[in-house]
């Protein structure tokens, strides 16, 4: 039996000292996870590396990746799920990290743009295709576009130009690189889905 606790403030450094956690209720299972506004320990993997962080439940996955883990390739463009710049993969599926409380990814696998290329620096074919098709300008939305494009292909949503356009519409690009992004995803989907793929 464990108490759900509630803290008083937002500063993880101070909150633990305050000792004002209030009992909220009880729960019956040992598997239940308890957290508080004081802070909670969260573990997950980021690009295959285990991560353990003490979190305020208010922190978004986006801010934790950027500010706590130094994974700044994931970008903040709106912080409200309206632009897609913060797209990452959670257990292989694309999500927006800005609307994901970081505590929610406890025990799960997060992949960011930093985890897409091989460790030796060899780019993923989609990254190559982005370069070949100049599917970017300022580059700020690009990590999100790549993460979304990878998922689009993996989901089987890259079957036609219209389908790719639709399934990449959750990633805004103000520079207007959409034609190149479409071409890069189309080309990569063909390459990866081709029966005689190289390698």
């Amino acid at each position: 039996m464990t108490a759900i606790v509630r803290g008083s403030g937002g500063n993880p450094a101070n909150a633990a000292d305050e000792g004002v956690c209030l009992a909220l209720g009880t729960m019956g299972s040992a598997e239940s996870t308890i957290a508080s506004a004081c802070r909670t320990e969260t573990t997950f993997t980021a690009n295959g590396r285990p991560v353990r962080v003490e979190l305020d439940p208010r922190e978004s996955l986006l801010d934790v990746l950027r500010e706590r883990l130094g994974l700044t390739g994931t970008k903040k463009g709106c912080d409200h799920g309206q632009c897609g710049a913060c797209t990452v993969h959670l257990n292989g599926r694309r999500i927006v990290s800005c609307l994901t409380p970081a505590v929610q990814v406890n025990g799960q696998a997060v992949t960011t743009i930093e985890g897409v290329a091989d460790a030796d620096g060899t780019l993923h074919p989609l990254q190559e295709a982005f370069i070949d098709n100049d599917a970017l300008q300022c580059g700020y939305c690009t990590p999100g576009q790549v993460m979304s494009g990878l998922a689009c292909i993996a989901e089987g949503h890259a079957g036609s130009d219209d389908e790719i356009r639709e399934y990449l519409s959750g990633n805004l690009c103000r520079c207007g690189a959409y034609a190149g992004i479409l071409a890069a995803v189309r080309e990569t989907a063909r390459r990866l889905n081709s029966p005689v793929s190289e390698g």
């Binding site: 130094g70 700044t72 930093e114 780019l123 970017l136 580059g139």
Partner: peptide, 25 residues
């Protein structure tokens, strides 16, 4: 034929203003 900073941009390595982090931030 390629944009010279494209690699940095498709890997997330390009560092924009708010990408700086430091412990005492």
């Amino acid at each position: 034929t390629r944009r010279v900073d494209a690699r940095e941009k498709v890997t997330g390595a390009a560092r924009y203003g708010a990408d700086r982090t430091s412990p005492d931030l």
